[in-house]
């Protein structure tokens, strides 16, 4: 087997009505990676995940998971993967351990080893004390943690997490991130993550894939994606617009200054070294700033730049309809 646990070549999915959800994806994901899929609603990320987890069949193209073809060897793929869906699928009328044992029986795992595994998994997400409690007594965060380990009972090599922290409060979300990192570090599982939360992708993913309109827009580490924005932004507000024009030429390193009213946005390579130069320039030229701030590149900016939020908002209704249609078709 190659070093990649997931490889796809020109993977496509077209739904009835000639709706092209995924338009030819090429991916290579390494063993032990946390790989994040980011994209707006209806971008094609969930369809991609569903194809890779054998839930739906691709229209064309090719993909292997753990060396097995997702179409021809789908049962082998399924034995090597775990899927944690957005929905809460645990049975409320069963205890946590009973839910986990049920999954163990799905895979025909022997009682002894699977019970030991279940104890370990409960301990991994700090649910050992409530393993014998009914799921209906669990909080939302506890149920999410249980869902997380439900996908690990069969000791998968690849774990698909679909919006693992959707609807959780900030504290619980942060805790979930710790658990996900722990799963990777302690179990060596490759994790494929889809999320709407940019900070989640930033925090967890070794590499991030931004997908939109069924195409991969970019793939890279968080740092690489941020670096693609070509530097930091210095924002200066002055009393008059004339001063802004002077400021725009303070250094040759400034790229594409944008003046908006009494505010100027200067893109510079490194604000830490350029800011003192700008201050010095303004003092020498008698320019008094009303406000000054520095904006470091964020994944939000990368995302908006690549997926074109402005255009999406203008055609908000059609984008929303498209997202709803995609969701309906995926099901």
């Amino acid at each position: 087997m190659t070093e990649y646990v997931i490889e796809t070549t020109d993977l496509r999915k077209t739904y009835p009505g000639n709706i092209m959800a995924v338009k030819g994806i090429h991916l290579q994901i390494k063993q032990g990676e946390i790989f994040g899929f980011l994209g707006p609603n209806g971008a094609g990320k969930t369809t991609t995940i569903k194809m890779l987890s054998t839930s739906i069949t691709p229209t064309s193209g090719f993909a292997k998971v753990m060396g097995y073809d997702i179409v021809r060897d789908s049962m082998q793929v399924r034995r090597n993967i775990g899927v944690v869906p957005q929905d809460l699928t645990t049975d409320e009328d069963l205890k946590a351990v009973e839910n986990l044992r049920m999954v163990a029986r799905f895979y025909d795992l022997p009682n002894g080893p699977s019970n030991k595994k279940i104890d370990e998994l409960l301990a991994l997400v700090d649910l050992a004390d409530v393993g014998n409690h009914y799921v209906r007594t669990f909080s939302g965060g506890m149920r999410k943690r249980l869902e997380l380990i439900m996908g690990l009972v069969n000791e998968p090599k690849v774990l698909f997490l679909d919006e693992p922290t959707l609807g959780l409060d900030v504290q619980t979300r942060a805790k979930m991130w710790d658990y996900i990192k722990k799963i990777r570090s302690e179990l060596g599982v490759t994790i494929i993550l889809t999320t709407h939360y940019l900070e989640e992708a930033d925090e967890l993913s070794d590499r991030i894939c931004i997908i939109d309109h069924g195409n991969i827009i970019t793939i890279g580490t968080s740092a690489e994606l941020k670096a693609s924005l070509k530097g930091d932004t210095i924002i200066v507000e002055t009393k008059d617009e004339e001063s802004l024009k002077e400021i725009s030429g303070f250094s040759e390193s400034v790229e594409e200054p944008i003046i908006n009213g009494k505010e100027i946005r200067l893109t510079v390579k490194d604000a830490d070294s350029d800011l003192p130069l700008l201050m010095d320039f303004m003092i020498k030229n008698g320019i008094t700033p009303m406000k000054m701030s520095v904006q470091k590149p964020s994944l939000d900016q990368v995302f908006l730049k690549l997926t074109g939020n402005e255009i999406r908002e203008e055609s908000g209704e059609s984008a929303f309809k498209q997202a709803i249609n995609m969701r309906r078709l995926r099901k």
Partner: peptide, 14 residues
């Protein structure tokens, strides 16, 4: 309705 059908179908079942 509760997502279990999909979960089962990504398990070792036809």
């Amino acid at each position: 309705r509760w997502g279990m059908f999909e979960q089962i179908l990504v398990g070792p079942f036809r």
